[in-house]
Amino acid sequence: MAQPKIDPTQVPGWGVDADPKNDPTYPMKRRNDGEHAGYSWDRPTQQPATVEILHSNERPNLSAVFGTASPPVALSGMIRRLAFKYSESSYAHWLPLMLADRINEVEGVVHDLSQGRVPNFFAERGGKAQWKHSPDRMLGRLLIGAFVVSAAVGYFTAPKSEEDLDQMEDDSSRSVTSRCPRNVHHAVAHFQE
């Protein structure tokens, strides 16, 4: 089990950066205690906000520069705006953002379709590479997916058993018990007898 030990002195560069002063907190930063003066430094020029930018409520402003990649849109955008009312310390901030991300994915598909483009899920998911390098894993995933979908479809569409159908017929003739759980139904039927 144990592998042969390596002689450190034979490793190129061994010890060249050894620094006995490297205790925790050093050299992670060159301390100047500038934080004690608060948010008072000479800020860079402010980038103008040409699109909607949400900012954390743990700071008073936009940072001097920011990205403009994907401004908030549609339903996901509404959820994101709501999320930014809460601090980074709150689940009410992060969980709605995760929800918005999932909704945004659907919005992306709708947007593609509205542009006359049908998303190629196989290609986008790197299906060609997976088929080339790992066909077994791909087939396994397809089989699991097919099984789950079949099971779900079967569960929701399969006809009831004959006994259950008879039971439903009885239930419909006794409106008072028609929506009761099975054991309650029996109790009520016994009382009626």
Partner: peptide, 17 residues
């Protein structure tokens, strides 16, 4: 200024962490 270039305060409005 303290060489914490991964923790800049003027490059991300959306999270302070």
């Amino acid at each position: 200024q303290q060489e914490l270039y991964g923790n800049c305060h003027e490059s991300n409005p959306e999270a302070t962490a």
